[in-house]
Design a protein around this nucleic acid. Sequence first.
DNA 1: TTGAAAGCGCTAACAG
DNA 2: CTGTTAGCGCTTTCAA
Lengths: 337, 337
Amino acid sequence: MKYITIIDLARRLNLSKSTVSRALAGDGNVSKETQDRVRELAQQLGYTRNDMAVNLRQKQTKSIGIIIPEIVTPFFMHVVSEVQRELNGRHGYRVLLAQSNENSDIELANLRMMEEFRVDGILLSVCSSRNNIPEYLRLKEKGMALVFFDRIVPQFSASKIEINEYAKSVLLVEHLIEQGRKKIVHIAGPEYIYNSTERLRGYKKALAKNGIAYDPTYVIPCDLAAEAAAAKITYLLDNNIDFDAVFCFTETQALGVKKLLSKQKIAIPDQVAIACMSGTTLSTLVHPTLTSVEQPVDQIASAAIQLLLEKIENPTAEDRTIVVDAQIKIRESSAVD
Amino acid sequence: MKYITIIDLARRLNLSKSTVSRALAGDGNVSKETQDRVRELAQQLGYTRNDMAVNLRQKQTKSIGIIIPEIVTPFFMHVVSEVQRELNGRHGYRVLLAQSNENSDIELANLRMMEEFRVDGILLSVCSSRNNIPEYLRLKEKGMALVFFDRIVPQFSASKIEINEYAKSVLLVEHLIEQGRKKIVHIAGPEYIYNSTERLRGYKKALAKNGIAYDPTYVIPCDLAAEAAAAKITYLLDNNIDFDAVFCFTETQALGVKKLLSKQKIAIPDQVAIACMSGTTLSTLVHPTLTSVEQPVDQIASAAIQLLLEKIENPTAEDRTIVVDAQIKIRESSAVD
DNA sequence: TTGAAAGCGCTAACAG
DNA sequence: CTGTTAGCGCTTTCAA
């Protein structure tokens, strides 16, 4: 594939390549007339700038990396897609994506890969808030623009987009309480995910606010799989521990719980309500009894871009945290919705 | 961020940069001893090659683009993720992703963007099998490596990964028939998506094979939204058209249908069974009555990579089509599953 | 086995 | 306003 270069243009116009370059860049130091001539020919010949050459010269790659824990949750993909759109279009950045499959080792490999690709910055949502801290530190000290989002690392100082999981959680649990639920089980996320500890905090707060005693029996840490959540519920049933609601960390867990309760002929939501937070189309379509919360994807994306570009432009800029206070919209679907 | 270059290495070792380059490349024309010295220092100083320089020199970008119609269906993301992993790892390619949001104009913009980024090849799953054909042609004639997958364009000659929708469809419909269903509605996809016409063909074939008369009333073209599918079913109900099964084009449609039937107090699957093809975790967890089919994601990904690299290496290579005959696994969930 | 030199396409001093 | 020159980091002849 033969591409037109500024040299081609220069030759045809009897100009030096510098002038052509300037004309194309809209430098100002070039006569209106030549500028027009150059641009017209460029247009006509279908010239497009060779970014590799520019980047080599400029010592940047004009590309950024996004690393997310997994790709099945539509939330992440929505953010990625939005960031991509914005960064491709307005800023001319290439966006490289990698997913870690909830595995810190893969995450590490992904970080290394991005570094090898010499991306100008990395948007990161972590698998675990402890496993790769030394690597985050190394990158940061090396001057890599590194911005965390959603799954952040609380004890690591960096720019972050934090989602107010605590507030969301309080709201959701209070919503259950308002419906008369008092024995609310919390299928929590693993403690190495910060979001999960925040949600737990919200859960406790909601109980306290409403004068319901906190019972540790009702809080069950659990990994992210549907089966794991189902197993926890089975345990409760087997031990005759009574409950009237289940608040899950993830949608997947909620699905697992729902499946199990159905199998046990336990009426949803008459006997037990199920809740989780999520912003997916699927879940609201699907869960007869699911209360959900919407994530402000666009806000998150644009905040992430802002902080990232800030760091890219000025690597020594101060770290900033933007807390996205979700437009919390409780959306209760009826049993047949 | 200061990076070590071969010149740095050369200086410290009193060698020319050519020799260093050769040593690093494992050229062979360099003494074992210098080779070792170079490599050791490189290792020690954390040298990594600057791909931009290489690519500029080599006149390629070592990057490919993937354009998919949407990102919500996990199937696409699984393929993307797999291609990414493989291409990043083994082949050192960067992978750029873009989604067209089921809109041919956006798809066109995405194609243009990939071209501007000078990707070495494009993996494409189209929105419509007619709207952008002139653009596909232009790219192909320009020498761009272009490989279609899943959502292909039958009348356009190019390398493709085709999924045997016909066979899958026959199987699924026959499965319904075996259960005693005779009045099977087909909520079809729009005719500008090839896969949808293939599935329709399969539907007809299954009926014919089993001696069931084909009734056009039962075939309802429908766009991809859940609401659209629900509306079609409403129409059938309002007009007292009797049916005992619904075979949908997409999972989303199936969800819409399910929702509507529930609302109308129609028992699933006792009165009406719902089926669609899909390979998502969600759907099997979620649909009490859904029969699904698994997509061989890895096969698709590796076939796509193979054809793409083939075209990149030799742009004049003949077009090839690989038909992926899904490992068709009917997975029937019980009502409480 | 090694080095010197050219060049990929572009930008940015510097000079005129 | 325009041209000359140098150089980003690397590979690849061509000579030695």
